[in-house]
Design a protein around this nucleic acid. Structure first.
Lengths: 345, 345
DNA sequence: ATGAAAGCGCTAACAC
DNA sequence: GTGTTAGCGCTTTCAT
């Protein structure tokens, strides 16, 4: 016979009680005689009773699961965020459904539908880089499904059941460029990403403003724009080296692209940071292990995941007195390493 | 009013049909008049009908969700495997619930219960390193819940609804050590992990056998054993350098530990591979970016994830004619890089 | 080819 | 304090 998962009905029968009483005894319902509660709890333990979460979810209208929609699981940033999200969610009694969108808006939309159909209690989203239009969030918004954006948020999408936690990318980028200028670098190139992605736009703006504030001209030929992966770093660096006046420093909006640039420089026999300084963004694991170690900006991945869950939990259990939580802006930390420290001149 | 998700009952009412007919029209049930099917499908599209998966799951006894239990999401191996698992699962119409055990058997057990309660269709598991006893798998086994182990499998746990895909760790380790010996290294140290974890045991055995087959003695002082992370690599390397006869090569059972060893060597002013050669295991992303790039063994992460899902799908839809799938053993590839290539003597 | 009815396991509203 | 009833949305007999 198929090994039977014991149900509330089973226990009710065995104890000569109504299913509702058993249910009440197991939950925090107050008006149950203490002896009854004990009898029920004892039997439940004996039979290893575990509630069928599917049934609970159907009854309650939502499950004990949170959905995460994110661009991908490559690099170290998103895996770290997901890990901390899951840790925080589990601690609060939630499971986590992970849905990578592969940077594709269509997939992102499909993931959101899928999560809605799975009756998740709430959703955590980091936008695909191809997403420019946010209409696929309307159904969630209409259904008032609690939603927290992390790292890549939809600008202007707000509401009582929506919040976000993002990095102050502008400040991070500004700090990098100010540091490079302070070290005496003069021609600072920037490898940026698609401009409709907020984080790349902000990093680009931080770069521009830092140049302006320090009286440096903006040189169009020192900007390279592409989805900032390792290949982009390679191509960008090659292009820069063909200039009649190549840059003496590169600030890349992503560590992977920095890695690509580094490989090109080494192949050309150029020294880092003597000939060209390098600085990136994300604090990827490998940045400490390269030669020289790479200057970068820490993205507070674990803190971001924890905060995102915390915000979502607040949205899930709204306090009638307290106002809905405000969006959170994390201040990133500049990590200066050897790749951008001018050797004593 | 709360925005109402349209249900089958709604559509039945609107079309003057029975819910059962609407359900049949939407599924692949044959005996529905074609015109009826069209009417239903049209309305479903108009109203953006999406089946409530919770209800489907409760009815069917299992959901369209797969569970993944794995040690952690750090490094690059597990994130890559998870990513490929999710990709393959989504393609087959399944969601994925990710449950890290943090290398803790208690958490692993709890995750398994949690997944069982969530009525997942099947489970993919990579064991926590602290797991030595497998009794917490008995309930799954008894419930005949389809189960596929990946990378770290439970030895001896088999059955009609259980399979596995693991790497030939023994062969990988053997290849590394054979390569080091061929390059002329004489005193090859090994950084291993907990011996009850199959993968570390196998890598250790491969190391020993390669030494034996090449007539090399086994020197106990050249073995360092610890959970092989970066810190272990640091400590292990420091310990080795204090020996009167330090090793001229280190084979670490994990790339992170190799990184730790590399940092120590650089601090001591020792050259890689001239003074000490390095080789690791996993093909972590950073191994190509260090100076020198690190020799390692590719773990076929994406292939492993895909295969694991494929096996699980086979278990989910067992063909009455075909036998249950055999465990898969993947042959890893040795990636020789500069960290272990003897400079021309 | 379609309808009626039952039930997956649970909880909440309403008796008493 | 406990029992009775209903219903979450779906699929699947069984009947016609």
């Amino acid at each position: 016979m198929p090994p039977h998962r014991t149900s509330i009905a089973d226990m009710a029968r065995a104890l000569n009680l109504a299913p509702s009483t058993v249910s009440r005894a197991l939950s925090h319902y107050p008006d149950v005689r203490e002896t009854t509660r004990q009898r029920v709890k004892l039997l439940a333990q004996e039979l290893h009773y575990q509630p069928n979460q599917t049934a609970v979810a159907l009854r309650k209208g939502h499950s004990n699961t949170l959905g995460v929609v994110l661009p991908h699981l490559t690099g170290s940033f998103f895996p770290e965020v997901v890990d901390s999200i899951i840790e925080a969610a589990n601690k609060a009694g939630y499971n986590v459904l992970v849905c990578p969108s592969r940077e594709d808006t269509r997939q992102e939309k499909q993931n959101l539908e899928l999560l809605a159909n799975a009756q998740v209690a709430g959703v955590l989203v980091s936008l695909a880089s191809s997403t420019q239009d946010f209409s696929h969030f309307e159904p969630l918004r209409a259904a008032k499904l609690p939603l927290v954006f992390f790292d890549r948020a939809a600008p202007g999408l707000t509401g009582n059941h929506i919040s976000s936690v993002v990095l102050d990318d502008y400040a991070g980028a500004y700090a990098v460029v100010a540091h490079l200028l302070a070290e005496g670098y003069q021609r600072i190139a920037h490898f940026s990403g698609p401009q409709h992605v907020g984080i790349y736009q902000q990093r680009h703006q931080g770069y521009l403003q830092a140049l302006r504030d320090h009286g440096q001209p903006y040189r169009e030929e020192l900007l390279y724009r592409a989805e900032p992966d390792q290949q982009a770093g390679t191509l960008g660096m090659q292009q820069m080296l063909r200039l009649s006046l190549p840059p003496d420093a590169v600030f890349s909006s992503n560590d992977s692209a920095t890695a690509g640039a580094m490989l090109v420089l080494k192949q050309c026999g150029l020294r880092i940071p003597d000939d060209v300084a390098l600085a990136g963004f994300s604090n990827a694991t490998f940045t400490q292990l390269t030669e020289p170690p790479l200057t970068t900006v820490d993205q507070c991945s674990r803190q971001m995941g924890q905060l995102a869950v915390q915000l979502l939990l607040t949205l899930l259990h709204p306090s009638p007195s307290l106002p809905p939580p405000s969006p959170v802006l994390l201040t990133p930390q500049l990590l200066v390493r050897a790749s951008s420290r001018r050797a004593a001149a």
